[in-house]
C-alpha cells in the first residue's frame, strides 16, 4: 500500500515532464489547488461543523494579496501573512460567538453562509479599489521577464504545478495530523454529545476554534494561490454562496472522512464542470449551481461517505467476506 502510494506520487510528479499540453496541465493544477481547498474544508466539515462560508476565507486570501500588491506595492509574500492574519481575525469573529453560544448544525451553516455573502458584497461595494463584479488583475510583473519571485508571478505552468503539488501534499499532511490528534477525537465527541463533552473538561469553544483556524487558514492560502496562478479574480469565483457550496459539494462528494476524499471530490467536480460546459455551455445562468445543489442533496442522502469513502467501504467488505464465510 505504502509502495503504491509513492509510485502514484512519483507518476503524478513526473507527468508534466512527459510533455503534456498546457490545457491538461492547467486542469491538473486547478484540480490539485481545489483538492487542497476542499481538504481544508473537510478538516472541520468532517467534525460536524458544516461551514457554508469558506468562500469568505478564500476571498480574503485572494483580495488582500492582490489589493496589497496593486495599491500598496506590498509583495504577495508579505501580503500572504497579512491575509492569514485577516482570515484568522474573521474566523475568530464568526467562530467565537457561534461556538460560545452553541450555534450548531443548520444554524451554524446559515450564519457562515451569511458571512461569505457579506465578504462578496464588501468586495463589490469597494469597486473603486477592487474592480467590483468585473474582477481584478494583479499588476503584471511579467512584462519583461517570464517570472518574478517577488511578485509571486510565474508564466511557466510547470513552476505552478510543483508549487501547488507541494501545497497539496502539505494539506494532506495537515489533514493527517488533525486526524490523529486528540482534538479530533474530542471534536467528534463534541459533535455527538456536547454536554457530556463539557462535563469531562473539554473547552468546546477552544477546540472548535482550533480546527476552524486550521481550516480557514488553509482556505486562505488556497485563495492567495488561486489569485496568483490565474492572475485574475472576481468576487463570484472566490467568495459568495456559489464557491462556498462548491467546496461543500467537492468535499462531501469525494468523501470528507478519508484523506484523499476531498481530492477525489476535486477531480469529480472538475470533470462535472467540464462536462456541463461541453454539453450545456455557459448560457443558462445559475444552472450549474442548481445542479451542484441537487447533486449535493443526492450525495448526502445516498452516499454520505462520498465516492472514495463508499469505495473503501465496499473494498473492505469484500476483503473481509471470505474470512467470515467458512466459519
Amino acid at each position: 500500500m505504502n509502495k503504491a502510494r509513492w509510485i502514484g506520487l512519483a507518476l503524478l510528479a513526473a507527468a508534466p515532464l512527459a510533455g503534456m499540453g498546457d490545457y491538461p496541465l492547467h486542469l491538473i493544477i486547478l484540480c490539485l489547488l481545489w483538492a487542497f481547498v476542499y481538504t481544508g474544508w473537510a478538516v472541520m466539515g468532517r467534525l460536524g461543523m458544516v461551514s457554508l462560508g469558506h468562500g469568505a476565507f478564500l476571498g480574503v486570501g485572494a483580495y488582500v494579496v492582490v489589493m496589497g500588491w496593486n495599491h500598496f506595492h506590498i509583495s504577495p509574500w508579505l501580503g500572504l501573512p497579512l491575509a492569514l492574519a485577516a482570515t484568522a481575525a474573521l474566523a475568530f469573529l464568526i467562530g467565537y460567538p457561534c461556538f460560545r453560544f452553541k450555534i450548531v448544525g443548520h444554524y451554524f451553516a446559515l450564519v457562515t453562509l451569511a458571512l461569505s455573502e457579506v465578504v462578496r458584497l464588501i468586495i463589490i461595494a469597494l469597486r473603486d479599489y477592487t474592480g467590483g463584479s468585473l474582477g481584478v488583475t494583479p499588476k503584471t510583473a511579467l512584462a519583461k521577464a517570464s517570472w518574478s519571485l517577488s511578485a509571486m508571478q510565474f508564466s511557466s505552468k510547470l513552476v505552478w504545478f510543483y508549487v501547488i503539488l507541494m501545497v497539496w501534499l502539505a494539506g494532506l499532511w495537515i489533514w493527517t495530523r488533525v486526524d490523529r490528534s486528540m482534538s479530533r477525537l474530542a471534536l467528534e465527541a463534541i459533535s455527538q454529545e456536547e454536554d457530556a463533552a463539557a462535563s469531562i473538561g473539554m473547552s468546546v469553544t477552544r477546540l472548535k476554534l482550533g480546527v476552524t483556524m486550521v481550516s480557514a487558514l488553509m482556505t486562505c492560502v488556497g485563495g492567495v494561490l488561486y489569485a496568483q496562478y490565474q492572475l485574475y479574480v472576481n468576487p463570484e469565483s472566490v467568495s459568495g454562496i456559489g464557491i462556498s457550496l462548491q467546496m461543500v459539494f467537492g468535499a462531501i462528494a469525494g468523501g470528507m472522512f478519508v484523506r484523499l476524499g476531498p481530492t477525489v471530490g476535486a477531480v469529480f467536480t472538475l470533470l462535472l464542470a467540464e462536462g456541463l460546459r461541453l454539453t450545456i455551455g455557459h448560457d443558462i445562468h445559475g444552472l450549474d449551481a442548481t445542479i451542484y445543489g441537487l447533486m449535493l442533496v443526492l450525495f448526502i442522502i445516498f452516499m454520505p461517505k462520498g465516492i472514495l469513502g463508499a469505495a473503501i467501504e465496499a473494498y473492505e467488505k469484500r476483503r473481509r467476506a471470505p474470512r467470515v464465510a467458512p466459519a
Binding site: 477525537l185 474530542a186 467528534e188 465527541a189 454529545e193 454536554d195 457530556a196 463533552a197 462535563s199
Partner: peptide
C-alpha cells in the same frame, strides 16, 4: 465529575476512547 441519568456516551468512538478523552481533558 458527574454521570448522566440517561447515559450519554460518544457513540461513534470506541469504549476506550470515550474514557481516554475524560482522562486527557478532565484532569
Amino acid at each position: 465529575a458527574r454521570t448522566f441519568q440517561i447515559p450519554r456516551p460518544f457513540r461513534r468512538l470506541s469504549v476506550v476512547e470515550n474514557v481516554a478523552l475524560a482522562a486527557y481533558y478532565g484532569q
